[in-house]
């Protein structure tokens, strides 16, 4: 145990030596992670092998084998990696296009009444529309190529990006602006020193939400019409009655979506080192 004084307030730091015991192992979270994962796979395997859901549930092994096969064999001219990239590319383009416009627009709406008054009525009209509702009109306008898919993603991610940037500024404690003014700052200082940095976490929350919406959008678009992408793989599995292909596609989507989320939180940690990070679900 070490004792030191920090700013004359006594600070004690205690390092406990954990004793090894069975109870400690059982209650260790990583141990529990492992147990629950293994249990899940076992139940899955049992359900598939016993055909609890008929023939349409593949065993974990069959799914793994199918995914390994897809790594080498080309489906519609692309390996699995090619299909993953096809979906990811659509998401990145749509997501970047939307956030580059929506985040600054949300910030300006929150900071400027005039901008708000001009944009708000139009935004309020589009806000409640589910992005999937745009698929048909997107295909009518842009055909079944890349443009219509990117368009859906832009539509879907625009709203949460804008909304979170806007709320991020609106929720700032007004006394923080008083601090800047009493230190001799002007309106420009208030915006640069308080509004923007304080809104950062909310902006990132918006980006995270947008990202998961982007995955929903791209899958929906690919399910309707596509020749590549993870959504298309799932549709192929359905058409060929290959449950291992459908489930494999779903697992890959979860994996890639999780990785993109990690990338965004990594960026947030880099840009907001001051934020107390919590382990969310």
């Amino acid at each position: 145990m070490t004792t030191g004084t920090i700013a004359n307030e006594i600070v004690k730091s205690v390092r406990e030596r954990k004793e090894f015991s069975l109870l400690a192992v059982i209650r260790n979270e990583y141990f529990l992670y492992l147990v629950s994962s293994v249990l899940f796979v076992l139940i899955w395997h049992w359900a598939a092998a016993e055909q609890v859901l008929g023939k349409s549930l593949a065993t974990p092994y069959a799914v793994a084998k199918e995914l390994a096969r897809l790594m080498t064999i080309k489906l519609a001219g692309l390996t699995l990696l090619g299909h993953i990239w096809a979906s990811t590319q659509r998401i990145l383009i749509g997501f970047v296009l939307a956030s580059v416009v929506a985040v600054p627009l949300g910030l300006f709406m929150a900071l400027n009444r005039t901008v708000n008054a001009i944009v708000k009525p139009v935004f309020d009209l589009f806000k409640p529309m589910p992005p999937i509702a745009w698929i048909s009109i997107a295909i009518l306008w842009f055909g079944i190529g890349e443009a219509s898919k990117v368009f859906i993603i832009v539509i879907g991610t625009f709203v949460p990006c804008l909304l979170n940037a806007y709320n991020g500024i609106r929720l700032i404690e007004p006394e923080l602006y008083d601090v800047v003014r009493s230190l001799g700052g002007n309106r420009k200082d208030e915006i640069l020193q308080v509004s923007f940095p304080a809104a950062f976490p909310a902006i990132f929350a918006g980006l995270q939400i947008s990202l998961s919406i982007a995955w929903t959008c791209v899958l929906a678009a690919e399910l309707v019409s596509a020749r590549s992408g993870l959504g298309w793989i799932i549709v192929q599995g359905m058409k060929l009655t290959k449950p291992e292909l459908v489930i494999g596609g779903m697992l890959i989507i979860a994996l890639v979506a999780w990785l993109t989320t990690l990338a965004v939180s990594g960026l947030e940690r880099l840009l907001c080192p001051w934020k107390r990070h919590i382990e969310g679900l």
Binding site: L176, D178, V179, R181, S182, L183, P197
Partner: peptide, 19 residues
């Protein structure tokens, strides 16, 4: 109006969390 000739200390600290 406010000015740097008066320094204000707030009841709820009001620090810049990002600094």
């Amino acid at each position: 109006g406010p000015g740097p000739d008066r320094g204000l200390v707030f009841q709820s600290y009001m620090l810049f969390a990002w600094r």
